[in-house]
Amino acid sequence: MTRPPTAAQRRVIDAADPVTGRLKGTEAQLAALVKRGLAFRHPRPPHDHFLTPAGHRIREAPEPEPESGPGTEPVAEASVTAGSGVFAARIGGEEAADGGPSRIREVHNAWQGLLEMRRMTNPDGATDRPCGWERTHLVQAAALALEAAGHPPAGASAGGAGYRVRATPQPEAVAVREPDPGALRACAATLEKAGWQVGEHTEPRTGARYVLASPRRV
């Protein structure tokens, strides 16, 4: 079984950029994460370090509680947990939340960070197609593309207008549903522009239309 990261390594992982996975730390800390397969050093200058998919999984997993016992004292650590300071795109169906200027700025910054990750991690530096992070976070990636383009997510109430992005049994594919046909086609156009392959389908039982989207490779 792989040994869990040390407390210091976990702090570096948790403090990674929430979208790009870019890391900050000492050379020794970053080298140790690379050795363990939790980070990689980008081959092009400035040779920044980024989380690998395994590193992202570590960050998203809850940090284990320290064991207590005789002679042990709780240790206070100023670390960023997986549940705080991490951007989350709205996939549709959440409770009503702030959609004001601060959220718009947050979404814009997240999308720009994702484009930078594409530039840094796609072999040819392309920003017009999804990168590895998006292929391991399909629902979040598709939802971010939609929210960044201004599409409204569905509210928590059933049947409300707005998009909903959900995982599917198919590998590398998400389903996007929108009760308004015109809005559904607009969502499809946005995803296609963001580098996704899209196709409209019909639910056999209900007749409802939905979009199946997968990250384009070339």
Results as ranks from 00 to 15, higher is better:
V107L: 05
P53W: 09
F40M: 04
G162P: 02
A8M: 05
T168Y: 09
R205K: 12
P46F: 10
A145H: 02
P66I: 09
P66K: 07
R36H: 06
V86C: 05
D48I: 01
A89E: 05
G21H: 00
T206K: 07
D14M: 08
A213T: 02
P74I: 09
G125H: 01
R11N: 10
I13L: 15
S214G: 15
I104Y: 04
Y163D: 02
T6M: 01
H56K: 07
A175Q: 13
G113V: 06
A61Q: 11
A154V: 03
V12Q: 03
L115N: 07
G159P: 12
T20Y: 00
N109C: 03
G25H: 00
P101I: 08
G69H: 05
T72D: 07
P43L: 05
K24T: 14
G195N: 03
D17F: 01
P18G: 02
F50G: 00
G21W: 01
A76P: 05
R105L: 13
P70L: 13
V176I: 15
E172D: 06
T206S: 15
S84L: 14
E200G: 09
F40S: 02
V75F: 08
I91G: 06
P152N: 07
T202I: 15
D128V: 09
T2P: 15
P123H: 09
R59K: 14
E60W: 08
T121I: 10
L51S: 02
N122C: 10
G207M: 06
D128K: 05
A39M: 07
R10D: 14
L23A: 02
A8R: 05
A213D: 04
P64W: 09
S84F: 13
P169F: 06
V211Y: 06
L144T: 03
T26Q: 05
V176Q: 00
E65Q: 11
E73C: 04
P43C: 07
R41A: 11
R44D: 12
R129L: 14
A161Q: 13
P5R: 00
E63S: 11
R44W: 06
R209W: 06
A7F: 00
D48A: 14
E178K: 03
A148V: 11
E203L: 08
R41H: 11
A31Q: 12
V34F: 01
G92Y: 05
C187Q: 04
L184C: 05
I13Q: 01
H47C: 10
S214C: 11
W133M: 10
P74C: 10
G195E: 01
